[in-house]
């Protein structure tokens, strides 16, 4: 079944229930070789359960997991071509850094020279080449993270899994490690899947994002697709700053409470229109609005506007001099291009 176009990792109808509780609803996910995939969602949405099913720690209740065309659904973690970086790292405290990294190869009883060479290579990849003889408890959080990464990468996994890899690090270190992860991904050209609740992290690293909520995958797509064309209200709200306006569709035409009208195919009924703040601009003949607040962020200006419907609209301008147009209380007309809005049927 392997062909050049087949995805490296293929989940078909995979789901998991714990008794009456559905942790992960049936989902499909295709990850191609070389992808850097983020599973994004709030805590408790089932994203870690999904990752542990891919790793083999949790057996799915239904569905099939295939890696490189091989069905691995019933295989334990030790028999899968995946390796994982755990949230708490799970480093072996009784072994040195080098022994931690070499653990997997030593289990395979590889020749000693090969183990030494590949350990050094893995440590060099995470820039810890001089730390081999250290004990684990004498490493900082960021260094422990790197050891965990090296210990997984030395196995040359078909798919590297990372469970909230950066959650335990402080902000500065987190940005540093993001850069490191990007560099390593480019350097070895592997396939990475990571779980995160931080959308900026997902966007910074991934080329494929799956947004999860309450055990369901809401949307799978590229970061820009998810950002600009959220498939559901949850995605629109969870991912980035956004304005959601209420309206109604009648015979292929949507009328917003705020006053705007445009054509939109779909069933009659209530709809929501999602607009990203940086796509909103001042324009003649736009919706009349009143500025309620304007906050200067250095690189941009965030303006809160009150629409005739009483709804709030957020506008973000990168024009440093825009401040004078947006004094609180000022009247402005605002609008956006139809291609920058996303119409979603309201539930």
């Amino acid at each position: 079944m392997t062909s050049a176009t087949a995805p490296l990792l293929k989940l078909s109808g995979v789901s998991k229930s714990f008794g009456p509780v559905t942790a992960v609803a049936p989902l499909d996910l295709d990850v191609a070789a070389g992808d850097f995939c983020a599973i994004l969602g709030p805590s408790g949405c089932g994203k870690s359960t999904l990752l542990r099913m891919i790793a083999g720690f949790i057996e799915p209740s239904a569905g099939k997991i295939a890696i490189a065309g091989q069905d691995v659904t019933r295989l334990g973690p030790e028999k899968r071509p995946t390796n994982m970086v755990f949230q708490s790292y799970g480093l072996f405290p009784h072994l040195t850094v080098a022994e931690n990294v070499a653990f997997g190869l030593a289990l395979q009883k590889r020749p000693r020279a090969e183990i030494a060479e590949r350990t050094q290579e893995a440590l060099r990849l995470v820039r810890l080449e001089t730390f081999g003889e250290r004990s684990i408890d004498r490493l900082s959080g960021g260094q422990q993270q790197r050891v965990a990464l090296a210990r997984a990468l030395i196995m040359r996994p078909k798919v590297l899994l990372l469970d909230e890899p950066l959650a335990a690090l402080d902000l500065k270190l987190r940005h540093q490690m993001q850069e490191e992860l990007r560099r390593i991904h480019q350097e070895i050209g592997g396939t990475f899947i990571f779980v995160t609740h931080d959308q900026s992290e997902a966007f910074a690293l991934a080329n494929l994002v799956a947004v999860m909520n309450e055990g369901k995958v809401e949307q799978i797509g590229s970061p820009d697709r998810i950002y600009l064309h959220p498939a559901t209200l949850f995605v629109a709200d969870f991912v980035g700053e956004t304005t959601i306006l209420a309206g109604e569709r009648r015979k292929g035409r949507v009328r917003l409470k705020a006053g705007l009208e445009f054509d939109s195919k779909g069933a009659d009924g209530p709809v929501r229109v999602v607009v990203r703040p940086e796509r909103v601009e001042v324009r003649f003949g736009g919706i009349p609005a009143v500025v309620t607040d304007a906050v200067f962020f250095g690189s941009s200006l965030k303006v809160s506007l009150k629409l005739p419907s009483g709804e709030m609209l957020i506008l973000r301008s990168s024009d440093a001099n825009a401040g004078e147009h947006f004094r609180p209380g000022a009247n402005v007309n605002v609008g956006w291009d139809a291609k920058d809005q996303q119409v979603i049927d309201a539930p």
Partner: peptide, 25 residues
Amino acid sequence: DQATVDAARDLGATRLAAFRLVTLP
């Protein structure tokens, strides 16, 4: 830390090997 056992399994250890090499020490 249960993650140490999970990590050992993930790196190719059977249940018994993970117990012997990671839990027991």
